[in-house]
């Protein structure tokens, strides 16, 4: 028997809409669940005190510092490399085998699981180069992980700068580099910043790559060579070893809130940027 198309469509629509509703519900449920149990734990002292007794009491101050230090280290390394790559691909060359290889490399790097980055960072930075478990090892490992994101978003930002900007700049007698630094980069900046912030989110949430390269020391880090525990690692250890559920929820709430903040800022920036050129 053939179902009339209109009837079929009505039926399918109900099914698809309910599946969409379930998906959105599940995703929102996760955030709501964490925030409902975590927000009551949050207080100023939770954010500003160091953890005591392995995190059973006290706050999460040193893990916040650790997270920021690792993220800053990763950005300091990956941003120049990523933006440089994007400038080269977009301004200094044309589509060729070389650019295809570079893009393919970046795509592959983006797909590599974080645990492989962890293994690699452990053997190269921690063992072979002798940095030990440290902010340096962890930051470099994270830098490699976020490099593809920065390359791709910067490239998109550069590509969206109108062609006429380049033509005008060159016709006024600027060199290519003057054109890039004075015209292209300033116009593409919001787009590039978007990519950088997106990578901040990724660094904050990363666990597997960090735990084997930055270690899990709870002390406040004092130098690039100190081992340091990030918020995600702290949360993982608290939850997995059942040290303190309230503190685990509290840490998770801080994590989720910072990720949401990062994403909202990115989204806003991206929209302003897109509006500007369309």
């Amino acid at each position: 028997m053939r179902v009339p198309p209109r009837l079929e469509q009505r039926f399918v629509k109900v099914v698809l809409w309910s599946m969409t509703a379930i998906t959105v519900f599940v995703l929102l449920f996760i955030v709501a669940y964490i925030l409902r149990r975590g927000l009551p734990v949050l207080s100023l002292s939770f954010l500003t005190e160091n953890p005591h007794e392995m995190g059973r009491t006290g706050g999460i101050f040193s893990t916040i510092v650790g997270t920021l230090a690792l993220t800053a280290m990763a950005l300091a390394v990956a941003t120049p490399l990523g933006v440089g790559t994007a400038i080269f691909l977009n301004e200094y060359t044309w589509e060729s085998r070389v650019t295809r290889i570079i893009r393919f490399g970046a795509d592959c790097l983006a797909g590599i699981p974080s645990i492989i980055f962890g293994l690699f960072g452990f053997i190269l930075f921690v063992i072979k180069m002798g940095f030990g478990w440290s902010i340096l090892s962890g930051g470099l490992t994270l830098a490699f992980m976020i490099l593809p994101t920065i390359i791709r978003t910067s490239e998109e930002a550069l590509r969206s700068v109108p062609r006429s900007y380049r033509e005008v700049s060159l016709s006024l007698g600027s060199t290519k580099w003057q054109m890039v630094t004075r015209v292209i980069l300033p116009s593409a900046l919001p787009g590039i910043v978007t990519g950088v912030i997106l990578s901040v989110g990724r660094s904050i949430g990363e666990t597997a790559a960090v735990i084997f390269t930055a270690g899990s020391a709870l002390r406040l880090p004092t130098s690039l060579f100190s081992s340091s525990r990030t918020m995600s690692v702290h949360f993982y250890i608290l939850a997995r070893e059942g040290i303190s559920m309230p503190n685990a929820y509290g840490t998770a709430a801080v994590l989720v809130l910072s990720i949401l903040l990062v994403n909202i800022v990115t989204y806003r920036l991206m929209h302003r940027f897109i509006r500007k050129y369309s």
């Binding site: 996760i30 685990a248 949401l260 989204y267």
Partner: peptide
């Protein structure tokens, strides 16, 4: 937005 939620949080849930 939810793509950014850390995997440890998913695991914990």
């Amino acid at each position: 937005l939810l793509a950014g939620i850390p995997s440890v949080v998913y695991g914990f849930i």
